[in-house]
Each structure stands twice: as structure tokens, then as C-alpha cells.
Design a protein around this nucleic acid. Structure first.
Length: 919
RNA sequence: GCCCUGGUGGUGAAAUGGUAGACACGAGGGACUUAAAAUCCCUUGGCCCGAAACGGCCGUGCGGGUUCGAUUCCCGCCCGGGGCACCA
């Protein structure tokens, strides 16, 4: 019998589906293990060979854990709301639901061919109403909650109302956005609308005005992580800053916990670092400066991390969008300020970043330095950001490079505060040196001066210690159709939740997916988009809404009473292993952690962090091939000779190239213009050039997993993707090595079959055979736990070549179990041929017995003055003195000693012998 | 600019501080075969000596250091990949 992978794979995929082999149910008799892949967005292009890399790794881990006796939850689904389907709908008029459905079907088909051990009964799409009901539900919970800073947790909004009734706004320390100040009496006197407006400043899901990333081309706002270098991540359209009222999530309230939680989870350093950067904690102080515009005087708060430099403040700067700008613009300067603001507003985000030109305008007002009493001018400049700190800064040009550039441009004074600092050419930003020109701080080192200055400021009521975070609240509305509708309607202008028992609030049908002529979101086109006669919210939720809690839903996907039942949540708890790309570091992985912590605060889930361990799989890049056409001809020259001619490099479809050799006939047939092509060959072959590039259609370098499954089988694909290198590493897809892996599987097959003879026998294994097997058991165990799959595959190859010719059941049975996580189809087939009625999934991982691999002898490397010269086999039981004696009398020793003499012999028992020679 | 990563043959890569290059591809040679496919065996980091050798020298981006011994640890650079970036 031959190794017919096509039939074997079909057979076992059907078997697993039919027997629900991978169905997971809570089972208190077994330890649980939850392995999750970042679910895909089903795009129209289908899967390429890079997508399954992480899926294969997680599948191997899942199958391994099952063999180890764990109850494994390994689900899959689709992140199905999003822009591409909607853009396609706008262009074609086709309902995004339809495209999404088709794409999902195609993804499922492709996934099924690779033989994943998913529990498909738990599959869902984020655009299913039964699913997004719970996205809407979570939103309503956030709408109905506020964040208590003193308890550091979210609480029901009713608690806040009760506190206001008792003590007004001063009664609580709550996260808020510029909430007004009021007494208990004032609160009681507020109208319903006024109360609602006040509460809106506290809700965790709130509506508020803020500067947002507005993308006119997409007709929607975007979250910070959806903008890259001033362009939209999807589509690459320019993005502008604009003030708008939007739904937002108070992620910033959780900044401290998001940061501190990183210490308790097993993620890579680089990913934690990215999140730390994104959260951007900085410790400093808020300080109050008196500011004066003519007769008007105000207290203006600024944030600084360098309170020690307050003696060097020579001017103040406001962000153009700051609320202080109108207050502090003097009548004489009004025209200049307006012109400046106008100019700033017209810039795209891109221009603002890229230009880095120093711009600004004087406001006409002055501020008083609270320590020196000196008066300094207040400027307006775009290098100060409205969204960070208070949107206003004290400028210390001597010790801040941005302030320095500004001072130079506008001729403002620069006062150095650190002894010996030369500020004639550039600012001295380093936090080291001895303070000078700084009153009571003089003589201190900067490191002492910072806390000393803050202490002073606090003692004199000028300011207080403050921690600022860079992370912003997440903009949560999109002016789009293909997303979750907000379960919010407007009753007399008050945002009111649709009752929970009316969820899901399903997307209405509309006839066109574009925004309306008046610029309203597409939902404005829906007939009767109202609730009990009141208008419903017309924007929809962003892409990350549906992916923020999907891992919880997998625990209990068909529950229509709760997002997840208490029992299911307490059994599965959180994701033990999460595999996905780094591109979600500052998006999904932040939002999910936030979302989970919120649900945790309200007692809906029992774990505070959703993903205990996270592995980032690398990207698989494409390996493109090129042909070289001699200019103005239809003649192509082989890569090795191309330098002799003037040529143009042309991408050639990698499907007509094998090992960089071009299939000339296929090339002629590829495109009509090449039909008459001529070739200059080397050694009778046309050698193509190559390059590693992103996998994309336009570079003709996309490798589709289906092709690989057709040619080599899913088991080979799985093994090969692992063999390619460490999972975390990015690498080009290169089919060169795939034959080796396929050869290995055929070798395994031949341990069982010689043509039509079934070879397996019941002979007792030899010590050597047991040693090979147990070395492999130990290696696989060790490697899988460390996600080092490539070395496991190598270990398999070594074991199989050592075991060549061995067809003993006692060896082959455990070998198949070891192989099954990697190459499950072939393992199942041979397992069945060994007479097992049940799937190999239910087998147990073989027990490692160190006795079989133990060596009686130790191989000592013998070094002379550090150069290892030879190895000597000595019994393990030998003591250091005996080892030394054996080495001294070894025949090779005399040769290396030569005319020198032995000064001493260093023996590290079990490790090394080093002979130190001297003249 | 700041932070994180990585740098080893023709290629993908492997090495608890202990014979660098396992394993695999590719390449070369051979066996089997009418032939091909498949399979199996040998060689394969560079240079040198040699009839041969378990012969010599060099070699893990570069320069230092620690050590009997460094791909591995420490310091200073160079280059690639990724992230953040007027964050006061």
C-alpha cells in the first residue's frame, strides 16, 4: 500500500467531523487548557500560506495537550464586520452579509483541508445577531457604569447618582472628561437633561467631543491605532484632525491597570514594550500658573515631568485646540491668532507630523511664574498637543529640545539651569548635573531636584504630583453600515439605552451603503430607524468591538441568557495560549484587556487578564521570481548573465518556476506577449532572480495552501511550516525544502508497509531502539512546551533514520502518538491499521523513561590551553582524580603536550577536562 | 531620537559557557534500473600540507573584556527588521 495522502486526509477529516472528535465540554475530572488563534477577517482573497502558520502551531499544541490529558478548548470563528466588505458593498451594491458569507465559506473550506482540531460546534461570526447581541450588551454595561478612581474599578452609574445626591461632584474621585463642578443641592435641582449631560462625562461608554481622526475618503472617524503615519491603515487615505462628538470608551481610566497587569502575564518582551509605549506612563506634576489677559486673570494648570526646571521658564505654550486659546487671546492679537488657527486646521495629520516646522503665534497674554514671580508670554503652537496633559505647557528652552527650537525661532530667552550646560547650539535635555540659577534648588543634582521641586510646589499649594498617560479613550463610533448598531435612542435629546431584553438591535436593510448626501451615516437611509418612535443612533461600532470579548463567547457560544454562563467561565477561565500577529499589539490586544477588566469589575468574568500566554507568529513573506528582458527586445536573459545586458526586471509567476528554474514553455503560454519570447540560457537552463517581498497577487508570489495540500498533503504542509524555522520568526515561503519533509513522511509510512506487505510485528525492541524512541519523547516534550517546533521535526527525522528497518509495534505505536500533533492524518491512518478502533486523539502521550537514554559513559572534551583537541569516553562513575589520571596517560595527550609540560589539569566532573600547559 | 529584535555555510537553520554548522534543502559523485520515477550510499564552511591520518590554520557582523574555554556572558560600535515619536 502506498502513502496516498489525498485519500487518507479526506477520510480522517470526515471522520473527525462526523465523530466530533474535538468537541470540548467542561469536565471537572480533567484540567482544562484553552488554546486560541486570533480569528481571521475573511477577506475575498482567501487564505495564503502565511495565515495557517500560527494556526498550525496552536493546533500542534492543542493536540499535544490532549495527549497529555488536558481537556482542550480550541475554537475558531470569524471577525466578520469591517471595512473591506463595506467598501465592496458601496462599489457593487451587494449586501456585505453576502460577500462575508461567501468569504467565510471559502475560508472554512481551506481551513478544513489542513486538518485542524477545532471544535467547530462553537464557530460564530461577529456579524451574527446572536453574537453581536452580546457586543451591544457589553456596550450597555459600559454605558451604565463609571470608574471609581479610589477603588480602581468600574461601578454601576446608580452608585454615582447616589453619591451626587449626598455630596455633589466633590463626593467622588471618578474618571471623567471635564465634568462640571456642582453641589448636592445643585444636582437635585438639575433637569433630567442636565443630569443626563453630567452623567455623560462619567460613563465608561460615553458621548463626548474630542479631537478625532477624520478620514474624509472613508467618510468616518478612526481610532488612533487605525491611523499609521497620518494615513488610514485601511486604504491609505489622508486623515485630518477634527473636533466631533463621538461615542468613546474610557480606556484611559484603566491605563494604570493595563500597565501593571503586564507584569502578571506571559507575553514577549517586545509586545509588552509596545503596550507600555502605547500606554505611555509619565510621572510628574501639575502646576498652576496665574495667567492674565488684560484685566482678566485665571489659574491655568500645566503638566511637567521637569518641575526642577521651573526657574528656566521663559514662555508658556498652548495647543491650538486648547480651550485656553479664546480666553487668552488679546484683542490686538486676535487677527494673527485666528489666521494661525485657520492654517493649522487645514493641515492633514500627515503634514503636521512630517513638516515638523516650528510654527506658532503670540496670544497677547502673560503668565506669572509661581516660583519667581516673573511674567512670561503665552504662545500658541502646534507642537503642543491638546489631548495630552492639560494642553498647555511651561517652556524651558534650555532643557527641552522642542522648546529650544521654538525659542530660537521666535527669539525668546534661554536660561540654563545646570552647571556647565552649553546651550548655545542645542538644549541640554539629560536629567543629570548640578542645578544652578534655581533658587533653593541650587547645588542639588537633577535627580534630587525633581522630587524636591515637587515637594515644594505641593507644600505651597502651587501644584501636586501627577501621573499622566499617553493612552487616549477609544473613539467608538464609525459612520458606517457594516458594524454593530448602537442600542441607543434619543428621547428628548437624551441618549437612552434600548432595554436589554430587546437586544439584539439588528442592522436594518438599506438600499445603498454610502453616507447620505447630507453627510449622515448610511443608517440614515434606513426606513424607520427608530425605537418606540424615537430616533436611534445612526453610527455603528468599530471593528474592534466584536473582537474584544470573542474569547469569552467561545466558552459558551449558544447561550442566549448571558455572554458566558458563570459555570462555563469558571471552568474555562481565560485563554491559556493565544497565538497571533504583533500587528494587534496596540489595537485588539489593548481593547480586549480593557473590555475584560471592565467585565471583571462588574463580576461577569472571574479573570482579570484574558490571555495568559501570548505567542506572536512571524509573517510568511513571499519569495518572488524575476526574469530579465533585454530592453526593447523580447529576449530574456538568465540571471547569471544579466549583467552583460541592459535589462528590465519582470515579476514572473512562481507557479511556472521550480527551484529558480523557469519552465520556458509555461512561460510562453503564460501571457500572449511572451509567446514568441527568446531566451539566453546558462547551461541549458533559464535561471530566475529572486527577492523576498510581501506575499501579494501583483508580485505573482502568492502560495495557496490548497496547492500545497494537493501536491504534498496537509501533513507535509503542517510539518514543513513548522520545519521552516522558529514560529515567532518572519521568513519567506520557499518550497525548496518541502521535499525533504515529504520524504520523511514516506519513510515513516515505509516502516509499516513494504509495497503490499504490512511489516508490523510484535518483536521486543532493542535497547538502541528504545533509546532512539525515548530521546525523541524527551525532546518533543521539551520543545513543544517551548514552542520550538522546528527542532522537534528535526528530532523526528533523526529518530526515524535511526529506527530505519524497525517495524516493531512497541516502537511504532508510541512513535505514531508522538507524530500525531504534527501530522495527524497519517498518524490516524497508521494507528487504525495497528488495530485501534478509537482516534489517536484519545491516546496518551508516551511516558519518558530516562533509563533508556542514560549513558554509562561520559564524553569528556579534552582541551589543551583552551583548545579542544579530542574526546575521551570515560565511565560516569569516575571521580575527578581518576579522570585526570586517565587523561594524563591517554595516548593522544603526549602528542599535544609536545615539548611543553603540564602545569595543571582542571576536571569539571561530567563536563570537561582542560590541560594547562607551560613551557 | 527612544524602545524592542535579530546578524552563524550556497539556502532554511541547530547548538544548559564545552568538538560550531545537528536536521533539511541545494550541489557533486556513486548504487539499483532497459530507462525514468522512487529508494539507498558517499562528499559538501574556507584555506593549506599530504599517500593517508582522530594533520595544520582561519572562521558565528566589527573592536575590546571576563574565562582553562565565548555563537552563548559584559562593555563599545556597525548593519537589517519591527514599534513609538513634537507626549512637555
Amino acid at each position: 500500500m502506498d502513502y496516498n495522502f489525498i485519500e487518507i486526509e479526506k477520510k480522517w477529516q470526515a471522520y473527525w467531523a462526523q465523530h466530533k472528535t474535538f468537541k470540548a465540554e467542561p469536565d471537572s475530572s480533567k484540567p482544562k487548557y484553552y488554546v486560541l488563534d486570533m480569528f481571521p477577517y475573511p477577506s475575498g482573497a482567501g487564505l495564503h500560506v502565511g495565515h495557517p502558520l500560527g494556526y498550525i502551531a496552536s493546533d500542534i499544541f492543542s493536540r499535544y495537550k490532549r495527549l497529555k490529558g488536558f481537556n482542550v478548548l480550541h475554537p475558531m470563528g470569524y471577525d466578520a464586520f469591517g471595512l473591506p466588505a463595506e467598501q465592496y458593498a458601496i462599489q457593487t451594491g451587494q449586501h456585505p452579509e453576502k460577500t462575508t458569507h461567501q468569504n467565510v465559506a471559502r475560508y472554512r473550506q481551506q481551513l478544513d483541508r489542513i486538518g485542524f482540531s477545532y471544535d467547530w460546534d462553537r464557530e460564530f461570526r461577529t456579524c451574527d445577531p446572536e453574537y453581536y447581541k452580546w457586543t451591544q450588551w457589553a456596550f450597555l454595561q459600559m454605558f451604565g457604569s463609571w470608574y471609581d478612581n479610589s477603588l480602581q474599578k468600574a461601578r454601576p452609574i446608580e452608585d454615582l447618582v447616589a453619591a451626587f445626591e449626598k455630596g455633589g461632584s466633590a463626593a467622588v474621585d471618578a474618571a471623567n472628561n471635564d465634568a462640571p463642578v456642582f453641589t448636592a443641592e445643585e444636582w437635585k435641582a438639575f433637569s433630567e437633561k442636565e443630569k443626563s449631560d453630567v452623567l455623560m462625562h462619567y460613563r465608561i461608554a460615553y458621548q463626548g467631543e474630542s479631537t478625532v481622526n477624520w478620514c474624509p475618503a472613508l467618510g468616518t472617524v478612526l481610532a488612533n491605532d487605525e491611523v499609521k503615519d497620518g494615513y488610514s491603515e485601511r486604504g491609505g487615505h489622508p486623515v485630518f484632525q477634527k473636533k466631533m462628538v463621538q461615542w468613546q470608551l474610557r480606556v484611559s481610566a484603566y491605563a494604570g491597570r493595563l500597565l501593571e497587569g503586564l507584569d502578571r502575564i506571559d507575553w514577549t518582551d517586545s509586545l509588552k514594550e509596545m503596550q507600555k509605549n502605547w500606554i505611555g506612563k509619565s510621572q510628574g506634576a501639575e502646576m498652576v500658573f496665574k495667567v492674565r489677559n488684560g484685566e482678566q486673570e485665571y489659574d491655568m494648570t500645566i503638566f511637567t515631568t521637569r518641575a526642577d526646571t521651573v526657574y528656566g521658564v521663559t514662555f508658556m505654550v498652548l495647543a491650538p485646540e486648547s480651550e485656553w486659546v479664546p480666553k487668552l487671546t488679546s484683542p490686538e492679537q486676535k487677527e494673527a491668532v485666528d489666521a494661525y488657527l485657520d492654517q493649522v486646521k487645514k493641515k492633514t495629520e500627515r503634514e503636521r507630523i512630517a513638516g515638523k516646522a516650528v510654527t506658532g503665534v503670540f496670544s497677547g497674554s502673560y503668565a506669572v511664574n509661581p516660583l519667581t514671580g516673573e511674567s512670561v508670554p503665552v504662545w500658541i503652537a502646534e507642537y503642543v498637543l491638546a489631548g495630552y496633559g492639560t494642553g498647555a505647557i511651561m517652556a524651558v528652552p534650555a532643557h527641552d529640545s522642542r522648546d529650544y527650537a521654538f525659542a530660537r525661532k521666535f527669539n525668546l530667552p534661554i536660561i540654563p539651569l545646570i552647571e556647565g550646560a552649553d546651550v548655545s547650539e542645542e538644549s541640554y535635555d539629560a536629567k543629570e548635573g548640578i542645578m544652578t540659577n534655581s533658587g533653593f534648588l541650587n547645588g542639588m543634582d537633577v535627580k534630587e531636584a525633581i522630587p524636591a521641586a515637587i515637594d515644594y510646589v505641593e507644600a505651597h499649594g502651587i501644584g501636586r504630583r501627577k501621573i499622566n498617560y499617553r493612552i487616549r479613550d477609544a473613539i467608538f463610533s464609525r459612520q458606517r453600515y457594516w458594524g454593530e448598531p448602537f442600542p441607543i435612542y434619543y428621547k428628548d435629546g437624551i441618549a437612552t439605552p434600548v432595554p436589554e431584553d430587546k437586544l439584539p438591535l439588528t442592522l436594518p436593510e438599506i438600499d445603498e451603503y454610502k453616507p447620505t448626501e447630507t453627510g449622515e451615516p448610511p443608517l440614515a437611509r434606513a426606513k424607520d430607524w427608530t425605537y418606540e418612535g424615537y430616533p436611534l443612533e445612526k453610527s455603528t461600532m468599530p471593528g474592534f468591538a466584536g473582537s474584544s470579548a470573542y474569547y469569552l463567547r467561545y466558552m459558551d457560544p449558544r447561550n442566549d441568557k448571558a455572554l458566558v454562563s458563570r459555570e462555563a467561565d469558571e471552568y474555562w477561565r481565560s485563554v491559556d495560549l493565544y497565538i497571533g500577529g504583533t500587528e494587534h499589539a496596540t489595537g485588539h490586544l489593548i481593547y480586549s484587556r480593557f473590555w475584560n477588566k471592565f467585565l471583571y469589575d462588574l463580576g461577569y468574568v472571574c479573570e482579570d487578564e484574558p490571555f495568559r500566554k501570548l505567542i506572536n507568529q512571524g509573517m510568511i513573506q513571499g519569495r518572488s521570481n524575476f526574469v530579465y528582458r533585454i530592453v526593447n527586445t523580447n529576449t530574456f536573459v538568465s540571471a547569471g548573465l544579466k549583467d552583460r545586458y541592459e535589462t528590465t526586471e519582470i515579476h514572473v509567476d512562481i507557479n511556472i518556476v521550480r527551484n529558480d528554474r523557469l519552465d520556458i514553455e509555461a512561460f510562453k503560454a503564460w501571457r500572449p506577449e511572451f509567446a514568441t519570447a527568446e531566451f539566453i540560457l546558462e547551461n541549458g537552463e533559464y535561471i530566475c532572480g529572486w527577492a523576498v517581498e510581501k506575499m501579494s497577487k501583483s508580485m505573482y508570489n502568492v502560495v495557496n495552501p490548497d496547492q500545497v495540500c494537493d501536491n504534498y498533503g496537509a501533513d507535509t504542509l503542517r510539518l514543513y511550516e513548522m520545519f521552516l524555522g522558529p514560529v515567532e520568526q518572519s521568513k519567506p515561503w520557499d518550497t525548496k525544502g518541502i521535499d525533504g519533509v515529504n520524504r520523511f513522511l514516506r519513510k515513516v509510512w515505509r516502516m509499516f508497509w513494504d509495497r503490499d506487505t504490512f511489516l508490523v510485528n510484535d518483536e521486543a525492541p532493542t535497547p538502541e531502539e528504545l533509546k532512539s524512541l525515548h530521546k525523541l519523547i524527551a525532546k518533543e516534550q521539551e520543545d513543544i512546551e517551548h514552542f520550538s517546533y522546528n527542532t522537534t521535526v528535526s528530532a523526528f527525522m533523526i529518530a526515524v533514520s535511526e529506527l530505519q528497518g524497525c517495524s516493531k509495534r512497541a516502537i511504532l505505536e508510541p512513535l505514531l502518538i508522538l507524530l500525531s500533533p504534527f501530522a495527524p492524518h497519517i498518524a490516524e491512518e497508521l494507528w487504525q491499521q495497528l488495530g485501534h478502533a478509537e482516534s489517536i486523539t484519545y491516546a496518551s502521550f508516551p511516558e519518558y523513561n530516562p533509563a533508556y537514554t542514560a549513558e554509562d559513559n561520559v564524553k569528556y572534551p579534552v582541551s589543551f590551553n583552551g583548545k579542544t583537541r579530542f574526546m575521551v569516553d570515560l565511565p560516569k562513575s569516575m571521580g575527578p582524580a581518576e579522570v585526570e589520571a586517565a587523561v594524563r596517560s591517554h595516548e593522544m595527550t603526549a602528542k599535544y603536550v609536545g615539548d611543553m609540560s603540564i602545569a595543571k589539569v582542571i576536571v569539571v566532573p561530567g563536563r570537561i577536562v582542560n590541560v594547562v600547559l607551560k613551557k
